Simulated scan of single mutants.
Amino acid sequence: MQFHETELPGVGKKITFKNSEGIYTVMILHHSGKREFYYLEDDDDDEPLFSTTFTSEETKELAIKLLGSREETPEEDSYDQMSLVRKKALVNWVDIKQGSCMIERSVGSAQNLSENEVSIVAVFREDELLSKPADDVVIHEGDTLMVLGRKKAVEDFEKTCKE
């Protein structure tokens, strides 16, 4: 992918590039930190297909996600194997709401309810992420559990959480 940069006096910088699908992206970097994105079918188009604006902070978050996704992109030869795994496994997020039988239960105890057919791989609690939670971590109302397992087992676990 080739980038073309142009200074915009008094405004900032314009960066243009073309993706593999032939869509041009024009990014205007304002001195204020605001970023404008325009998507065009042709570099000379006056009307964009789509446009959006990001704050400086949103742009940084997007960049972090894009950089991370580069590491997570599967190689061509492993894609078929990953597809097979995805057909058999499911990752889902389960919200623990008021009245759930999971409130004040440990992660280990919750996993045992499904006879080890699901794994709780993370607990999201307010602004905190507990990845690979220990079996003695207690589940609270408002937590979101990241659950991994076969589709049927995950669906059954979700139903149990609502009881």
Rank of each mutant, 00 (worst) to 15 (best):
G99S: 03
G99I: 01
S100V: 05
C101D: 10
I103V: 07
E104G: 11
E104C: 13
V107F: 01
V107N: 01
G108S: 03
G108A: 05
G108C: 05
Q111E: 12
Q111I: 05
L113Q: 09
S114H: 03
S114V: 03
E115S: 11
E115W: 15
E115V: 11
N116M: 15
S119N: 13
I120K: 03
V123G: 00
F124V: 08
F124Y: 11
R125S: 03
R125Q: 02
D127I: 04
D127F: 10
L129W: 11
L129A: 14
L130K: 10
L130V: 09
L130T: 09
L130Y: 13
L130D: 04
S131R: 12
K132C: 15
P133E: 08
A134M: 13
D136N: 07
D136C: 03
V137R: 04
V137T: 06
V138R: 08
V138T: 13
E141M: 04
E141V: 09
G142H: 04
T144L: 10
T144E: 09
M146T: 07
V147F: 04
V147G: 00
V147T: 00
V147P: 00
L148T: 06
G149C: 06
K151D: 06
A153E: 09
A153C: 05
A153D: 06
V154K: 00
